[in-house]
Amino acid sequence: MGEQSIIHMHDISKNYELGKITVKALHSIDLSIEAGDFLVIAGSSGSGKTTLLNLIGLIDTPTSGSIYFDSKELDGNERRLTEYRRDRLGYIFQTFNLIPVMNVYENVEFPLILQGVSQGQRKQLVMDVLEQVGLTGHHRHKPRELSGGQRQRVAIARAIVKKPDIVLADEPTANLDSVTGEEIIELMEKLNAHNGTTFVFSSHDPMIITRGRRIIRLHDGQIIREKEAA
């Protein structure tokens, strides 16, 4: 476990019960996520990318093994997990998962409301982050009025507005055309470089995978290779 580790996973396994069959989604995973990482989890479909992201994002629990957050082992306390999700982690989903009854501003503002940030501060933070993702002037639009790329930018803004330790993205470009996907990756790179935001994202697209500074390749639920860009 490195000193800079935000999350450390030790001997993690995850099994799913499908009727009488046990599917081993992850097997003996050891992984540390360091502050400032731009990490890609690569692998073919069914390799366990999403399962691993879910475990890192504390939205799923391992069958065995330990997860450490800030060197403290997580014990399944629901209140503490909610606090971590609220304050320390940001999510970007493949299908954007914006709340349709909220406009762009409200979607981005929502995590700050959960944190109890004052209205004045919220406005400043939301407008700043919308500018960073290039959505100034779109804050009153409803998600349905935006293109796929714009929706994903809103999702990124929502994930980073609270300045989380880690932003997790499950195949963030999978539902976008290649040009828009490229824009999204560039945006994430920019935020990582300028703000020091840690990104962990999954992909099976070779073009996207090569953009990672650290690449973990999964196969049948096991890490088969880990590579750091020079």
Binding site: I59, E78, E83, L89, N97
Partner: peptide, 16 residues
């Protein structure tokens, strides 16, 4: 249901 999952993943408590 998926939206509820999203809200929970953002740190919304179950009570909220």
């Amino acid at each position: 249901t998926r939206e509820i999952g999203t809200l929970l993943s953002l740190g919304t408590s179950r009570f909220q």
